[in-house]
Each structure stands twice: as C-alpha cells, then as structure tokens.
Design a protein around this nucleic acid. Structure first.
Lengths: 169, 169
DNA sequence: GAATATACGTCAGTGTTGTTGACATTCCAA
DNA sequence: TTGGAATGTCAACAACACTGACGTATATTC
C-alpha cells in the first residue's frame, strides 16, 4: 500500500523511454539481491552456496529427475553440477539411484534431511516473495510474471513452462 | 499478446498460494538468466565480467561518484570493486580524479571509450527489456516494477530510489 | 599539535562456482 | 560385436567473491 505513485509514471505511451527501461534494469538488479539474500544467509551457515540451493530446489520440484535433465534446467556444465551434487549426496541430503531402464542415468531424490533443507530455504524465500506480493497486489503480480516470462530466453521459457505441466497453476 | 491466460489464474485471492509463490521464484531465476545473457556475451568477448558491467553502469548513472558510494550501491567489498576498477582504469574506460574539497576521495567518470562500452552493454540489455515490456504492456510493467521494488531490502530500496532523484521518472 | 577517524589502495589467503580435458560405463545401432 | 553416442565422474584451472591485515594520505577532533 502507500503505493499510490505509479512506478511507471502513469503515462501509458511513455513507458518505453530509455529512462523507464533503465529503471527496470536497476529494479531487476536490486530486487535480485533481495531475492537471494535470505537463502544466502542460511546457506552460508551450512557451508553451501547458491548452486546447492538451485539443485535442491529443482530436485524437489521434479523428484527422480536425471542429472542431464537438471543440467539443462540450471544451464551449467555437468562437471559444475556434479561437484555440488557430490557434496549433497555425501552429506545425505540427496540420494542418487541408478536408472532401471537406462543404467547410465542417475535419478535424483531428496532425502528427509534434504527435504528439510529445501523447506527451510524456500520458506525464507517465499516469505519475502509473499510480503512483496501482498504489498503489490494481485494485478501487479500478474504483470510481474508477464514481464519476467517475456524476458526469458525461449529455451528457458520452455523449461520454465514444463515445470508446471503436471502441477496446475 | 496471446497472453489471454492470466498468469495468476485470474483469482484475486489465490495469488499467495505456495504454488504461485514458487512459480514467482522460478520466474525470477529464469528471467535473470535472460536478463544477463546479452551483456554477458559482449563482456566475455572483451575479457570482462558482470562486475565490470555493474561498475560501468552505475558510474554512467552517477558521474563523479566516489569509490565509497559505488561500494555501497553495489554491495561488494572494496577489494572486490578495486580489482575491477583497476582494470577499467588501466584499459582507459574509467578515469579517477582526486576530490577537490576532500582530497581523500576519488571521483569516477567514464571516458569516451567507457561510454561506448556502457552504451553497447545497455543497448543490448534494453533491447531485451523493451521487447519484454512491449509484449507485456504498460500495466504489466507497472506491476513488474511494484513487485520488484517491494522485494528489495529497505537499504537497497533507498539507494535505488536515490538514483532517480534528479532524473524525473 | 597530537590523536583519532575516514577514504582509498594493496597483499595474502580462502571458498564457491564456473570452465575444459580426460575417462569409465552403458546403451544402441550398423 | 564393434564403434559411436550418451551419461556421469574425477582432476586441474580460472574468475571472482570474501576476510583480515596493513599502508598512506587527508580530515577532524580534542
């Protein structure tokens, strides 16, 4: 609330000025800092980093996913992901099961401990997101999502959409 | 367009469900990848990284800013910023002038070459932002900004607002 | 004027995370 | 069955963030 001043200046035809665009760029930068701040704090205590968070998040989202699948979602090299995955497996947060039909594949699951960490992290992140959503209101949230989705690379957009195929939005 | 299906499901009271929040989190993650992809490509060619981009961006935004000021905006350590600044000064993209009233301070400016790089980078980033804005429409952009602003840490929000104090939105 | 604080720069050490290269295993198709 | 492609692992290296300690110049305070 108190948000009576429209952040776009209220002009419907001037919303593509360079200054508007620059402001949007800066908003992304500062907001992303806030977006990662809370999980980062928790992760640092436990000796993990953002890469661990991302892995845990998407394994939780798609239990049984393969390493390769996870790789394409995260957009990093398999070696990079592997380092993270190894520590998570060693620490008993993730379990890796050899595929039944294709024994080359490893299917990834969160253990109970892994689920606990995932919950701790996403609770923190969701709290902030919830507060922002509540402050901005449903229509702003719809716009927020629309712009973000339009900003994605087509390939990433596909993967993003695929995540909610089963789960209804 | 074609965005007739509202990303919030159209329900004004369901925009705070865990699934909605999770979707927002993932949207931030994937969108940020797109957000940085174009500048990253340009930077990689020239042997620079995101840190250089950020420095150049904010020096351009506030010419004559001091090192300390830049430090607090970027939220990094001075050692980290110094490494970046040193290479930018060596390469002739940034100039550093001893302060007149306080000779301890260094005021930072972009040289012509620095301005050229800044333009190249922000043109690329703005193009994507512009496309996303155009696709989503003015109202979505307003919501986008509202949510992002609500997501910032208060301290960062202050700095974000301060950037456009002179320039009218 | 002396002590203290501030602004900036630098050196050394560490950790996370990305990269490439080499390699083992498994699957599949010629 | 053999060779190529796919999957995943191990090792070494680079980029870039961080902390801690220190040096220098300047400003401020007592």
């Amino acid at each position: 609330m108190e948000q009576t001043l429209s952040p776009t200046g209220g002009q419907s035809l001037l919303f593509l000025t360079d200054e508007q665009l620059r402001k949007g760029i800066e908003a992304m930068f500062f907001a992303y800092q806030g977006f990662t701040a809370d999980p980062d704090r928790i992760l640092a205590e436990k000796g993990y980093g953002r890469a661990h968070h991302r892995a845990v998040h998407f394994i939780n989202r798609s239990p049984g996913t393969t390493v390769n699948n996870l790789l394409s979602i995260l957009g990093v090299t398999k070696q990079s992901l592997n380092r993270v995955l190894r520590t998570l497996i060693e620490d008993g947060l993730v379990s890796s099961e050899v595929g039944k039909s294709d024994k080359r594949e490893r299917h990834l699951f969160l253990t109970e401990d892994g689920k606990a960490l995932e919950k701790e992290l996403s609770d923190a992140q969701r709290d902030r997101m919830r507060a922002a959503y509540r402050l901005a209101g449903p229509e702003a949230v719809a716009g927020f999502r629309q712009v973000l989705e339009a900003m994605m690379d087509p390939e990433m957009r596909r993967r993003y959409d695929a995540l909610s195929e089963r789960l209804r939005d």
